[in-house]
Design a protein around this nucleic acid. Sequence first.
DNA 1: GACAATACCAAGCAAGCGCTTGGTTTGTAA
DNA 2: TTACAAACCAAGCGCTTGCTTGGTATTGTC
Lengths: 207, 207
Amino acid sequence: MSQNQILQSLIAENLVSDPQGARGRLLTEAARLFREKGYERTTVRDLAAAVGIQSGSLFHHFRTKEEILKAVMVETIRLNTALMQAAMEAAETPKDKLRALVRAELESINGQTGEAMAVLVFEWRSLSEDSQAEVLELRDIYEALWLDVLRTLREQKRLLADPFVVRRMLTGALSWTVTWYRPERGGLTLDGLTDQVMAMLGFPAVA
Amino acid sequence: MSQNQILQSLIAENLVSDPQGARGRLLTEAARLFREKGYERTTVRDLAAAVGIQSGSLFHHFRTKEEILKAVMVETIRLNTALMQAAMEAAETPKDKLRALVRAELESINGQTGEAMAVLVFEWRSLSEDSQAEVLELRDIYEALWLDVLRTLREQKRLLADPFVVRRMLTGALSWTVTWYRPERGGLTLDGLTDQVMAMLGFPAVA
DNA sequence: GACAATACCAAGCAAGCGCTTGGTTTGTAA
DNA sequence: TTACAAACCAAGCGCTTGCTTGGTATTGTC
């Protein structure tokens, strides 16, 4: 299943908003602004202007500003969980599965959904505690994907460190790429970056 | 030189504020609040209340709220650069130097200066562009420490990935520990965590 | 072509924000 | 004691914020 097919089926199930529609367009713009200026510094007037409506009209679609932030996060996690699941199922060996996960997460962070992913990482505290708990629950689903693969590699002695710790280190390392990795200008492609991550973990590229 | 001696000499040179003094106490409380609630959500009234003065009186010590944030960041970098330099000079082999750097950065992030370090990572965008540039310049000094060591290890083929990339991955991985590592409750000590990081990079603990 | 429901606008309210102001207290040193 | 600066207070100004309100287009349905 292609990435686009996955997106389409999630839209059909009403799990994510169509980026063409009014709601989806707002969420896309919100992600962009939240990332660029931070949630607090982005006003409802900014958000409204970005989609060409009045600030008051926002509250027809969302009850509060925070609900917009939460929607950005929830839909992003849903989409990426689905993408990761697909990427991993296509791989065979544990090493290949790990590579697929790394590559998929890098793509989430630095590709189309990058802005929303950055929001997920950096605007965490702007959510109320209740919303945080809700979002956290969704995250657990795809964290399980990682731990499965890492545990297998650990049992095969191909990984020297604890799977939990490694996953958390990778979470930090991969999401941090959003602050420095610029595929457009020069050198490192996404596959190249994936190779570097794998090499760092002791899995050299090619034979 | 002990950590305390380093702090004292920096205070003597007026490079960081004495945490006992009025200014230093404010900066400590500011770091705590900025980390806990984020810079934008922390009001000057919160800051003033934390040190027991009126909100207006803050502006006798700092011209703007942003100046407080900047001071937290600048002083933290100064202190940690000095601590890292000391930690590294005490080590001999490149591997030991790398371990010293990892351990020192983990200590910065999870120890006394942890709150300020978290602010450095997560409140970056709340600084004006000019201030960002200033702070960035200070960071470059201690980034050079890391790159030196990593380059040496790479030349010795004990590191499989590019030193620049590895450093950036480590920046993300180590600063991310602030979100999950809780030394007080259970299991992993700071040395244990350092071992895990080294193991992840292919440097197993002990022989 | 009637009629809801949906989507939006224009205006503005109440609260909270960073910061200023004018004046008082406290510390220090001759 | 006097002189003076540093440290602080009490009050509040001017602005921005998230959100509400009452009303008007636009859209889909039979």
